[in-house]
């Protein structure tokens, strides 16, 4: 997993955001009301793409990766298998992280009135699509 991450991160950093990943984030935001931001983050904390105006995207990316590392350990220790998602509910809304393959994670910000069921459904799909995009980038680095 770590090797995959290095390839992916090495390929993307510090180049501009992957336009296909960015498109997925924009589609996600347009599909779910009250979803205020979406970020694709490498598991090492590198920001791959973001559509999250008015946020500290780089800091969010780093913290998402840190939270992900803890969530992976927690799921593993509790014998719950591979990481799927992480949901934090604050007084002013939600921050969630969804698995997006071995090299990336999708972070999502939403208002308190957001439809969490809907966010789960849409973000899981987006996570899977980002995973495919990331895998494609890993397999064919010479194409880029």
């Amino acid at each position: 997993m770590r090797r995959a991450l290095k390839q992916f991160a090495g390929l993307r950093q510090p180049a501009a955001a992957d336009p296909e990943v960015l498109r997925e984030l924009r589609v996600l935001r347009s599909r779910v009301p009250h979803l205020t931001g979406a970020l694709a983050v490498g598991t090492g904390g590198v920001l791959l793409a973001e559509d999250a105006p008015g946020t500290q995207a780089a800091a969010l990316a780093a913290l998402t990766a840190a939270a992900l590392a803890d969530a992976l350990r927690l799921a593993d220790t509790a014998d719950r298998g591979h990481f799927r998602e992480l949901l934090v509910r604050g007084e002013k809304g939600y921050v969630a992280a969804y698995a997006a393959g071995p090299a990336a994670v999708l972070a999502v910000l939403a208002e308190p009135r957001a439809n969490v069921g809907r966010i789960h459904l849409e973000a899981r799909r987006t996570g899977a699509r980002i995973a495919r995009l990331a895998a494609g980038a890993d397999e064919r680095p010479e194409d880029d």
Binding site: N115, V116, G117, R118, I119, H120, L121
Partner: peptide, 20 residues
């Protein structure tokens, strides 16, 4: 938007999608 409980449904009717 989350279901507290579901009964029935299946491949043709995903009740979590219906709930959301």
């Amino acid at each position: 938007g989350m279901a507290l409980g579901t009964v029935g449904g299946g491949k043709d009717l995903d009740l979590n999608v219906a709930a959301a």
